[in-house]
Design a binder for these strands. Structure first.
Length: 465
RNA sequence: GUCCCCAUCGUCUAGCCUGGCCCAGGACAUCGGCCUUUCACGCCGAAAACAGGGGUUCAAAUCCCCUUGGGGACGCCA
């Protein structure tokens, strides 16, 4: 039997990192097994589900490179299937109609609560209000005693007492299925073989097992992965800052960094930290998935991101940076100059935005000097030195790094200055600030004319003694 | 409150299933050093954990129990 996994988000917001991790695990598991990965949208909550959100989720998945083989299916388009299954259960006596109103139920629930209890509804008020035109829900008739066992691939057998499970609703009065029912009907009819999902669903699983059994469907292999927590050990939420995948995209993160990072949250392969997508597919198995919750560690994500920025081909990084520059009003082409710049800047960037924010002086027609840098390094005594450098550089017929080195060596020797004394003023002259790639690299990128122009410009702004 | 899950450095984790090779390994972050024309990168090094208590055993991070701690769930939400 071919492996079929699924990712089933509810479209009530954009894809957050927790959901992305679940999607990644399912996707990796399917790809590893050469099976299929299905996308299903669980939009039975009519109040909160939006089309926009579906688009946001699929966009994020595409950006991450999580391709799906079927779907996105919408549960809202499968109502007949759920109703048919509900009727099946009605006919077989596994389910019954219940006429209690939500308000009445609320009251009962409050009563129970005031007794310090939880309402465990076992069909006692089903016939209350019964009548031909009275709206009703359909509930599953659950066992009154005994236990319900859940087989979990990660946690073994988990046993629940039947009294813990009440006669839950499978079909709401609006004819929509509830989550537990829709999930089971879908997973069964879509032939899902492996359900990998968050830990928070483990508590739902006895209910789902009951539905599978009542419907005579086989229970798929279940694996409940533990959740991702914020730095305060609470379930990751908006409170913790950026939690959506697009937020990270917008902050200059690379999809491979996110995939790599999220894969390693709850899964590991010995001591290895860096995984390409292909490697993940090859190495991912449920055996190496851990059971304890993992804290989302932004610093490690950042480290991975900087790793990929450093090690990805500069052409690729350049292509990602170009649109960011455009947003800032800087139109640049993917040429040799940009590649050289990226090679340098990617060494010191943690995100694509770091590159975007430190690239300006390479393209500026006029250098803006940082006040502090100018005051510290562009002083009158350096003026003749800069002039000397301009003269010597002007004479170079071949403006390459070797020749530049020779020029600087010569100046250093003649004037008995250390490179540091010369390099910083030159850096300020060329870039306007004190932080940049190596000075010779910068000169190489700018080219002879621009270097000389900028040095001359700096000389002109230095006051005479 | 009830039920369910979980428990190794601050964080992600290896080791646990199949006890001894573990006075516990790697990575991020931190701190120190080296490199150096700035900032980074890189390299070297340091500090840092088996939650506690009982068992079982010649031997326990590894198996069992209890306690504690953390998380999750208790909806006509998903």
């Amino acid at each position: 039997m071919t492996v079929r996994t699924r990712f089933a988000p509810s479209p009530t917001g954009s894809l957050h990192v927790g959901g992305a991790r679940t999607a990644i695990f399912n996707w990796l598991f399917a790809r590893h097994a050469g099976g299929q990965f299905i996308l299903r949208v669980e939009d039975t909550d009519r109040e909160r589900s939006t089309e926009e959100s579906i688009l946001e989720i699929t966009d994020a998945m595409e950006w991450l490179g999580l391709d799906w083989d079927e779907g996105p299916f919408r549960q809202s388009e499968r109502l007949e299937i759920y109703q048919k299954h509900a009727n099946l259960l009605l006919d077989s006596g596994h389910a019954y109609k219940c006429y209690v109103t939500p308000e009445e139920l609320d009251e009962k629930r409050k009563e129970a609560q005031s007794r310090g209890d939880v309402l465990h509804y076992k069909r006692e008020w089903a016939k209350l209000n019964e009548g031909p035109d009275v709206p009703y829900v359909i509930r599953l008739q659950t066992p009154d005693e005994g236990t319900i066992e859940v087989q979990d691939k990660l946690r073994g057998t988990v046993t629940f007492d039947a009294t813990e499970v009440d006669d839950f609703i499978i079909l709401k009065r609006d004819g929509f299925p509830t989550y537990n029912f829709a999930v089971v009907v879908d997973d069964a009819t879509m032939n899902i073989t492996h359900v990998i999902r968050g830990d928070d669903h483990l508590i739902n699983t006895p209910r789902q097992v009951l539905i599978y059994k009542s419907l005579n469907y086989e229970v798929p292999t279940l694996a409940h992965v533990s959740m991702i927590l914020g730095s305060d050990n609470k379930r990751l939420s908006k409170r913790h800052g950026a939690t959506s995948v697009v937020a990270y995209k917008d902050r200059g993160y690379l999809p491979e960094a996110i995939i790599n990072f999220l894969s390693r949250l709850g899964w590991s392969y010995g001591d290895q930290e860096i995984f390409s997508k292909e490697e993940l597919i090859e190495k991912f198995t449920l055996d190496n998935v851990g059971k304890s919750a993992a804290v989302f560690n932004e610093e490690k994500l950042e480290w991975l991101n900087s790793h990929y920025i450093k090690n990805d081909p500069p052409e690729k990084i350049a292509e990602l940076v170009i649109p960011l520059l455009k947003e800032n009003g800087l139109e640049v082409e993917l040429d040799e100059k940009l590649i050289k710049i990226i090679k340098e800047l990617s060494q010191r960037a943690k995100t694509l935005l770091d590159i975007r924010d430190s690239i300006n002086y390479f393209y500026a027609s006029e250098i803006e000097f940082e006040e502090k840098a100018k005051n510290k390094f562009l002083k009158s005594e350096i003026k003749p030195v800069l002039q000397d450098i301009v003269d010597k550089l002007s004479n170079l017929s071949d403006f390459n790094m070797d020749e530049m080195h020779k020029v600087f060596d010569q100046v250093m020797e003649e004037r008995e200055l250390k490179l540091g004394k010369i390099a910083q003023p030159v850096r300020v002259a060329l870039t306007g600030g004190t932080v940049s790639p190596g000075i010779f690299e910068v000169m190489d990128i700018l080219g002879k004319d621009e270097v000389i122009a900028r040095l001359n410009n700096a000389i002109s702004v230095i006051p005479n003694e």
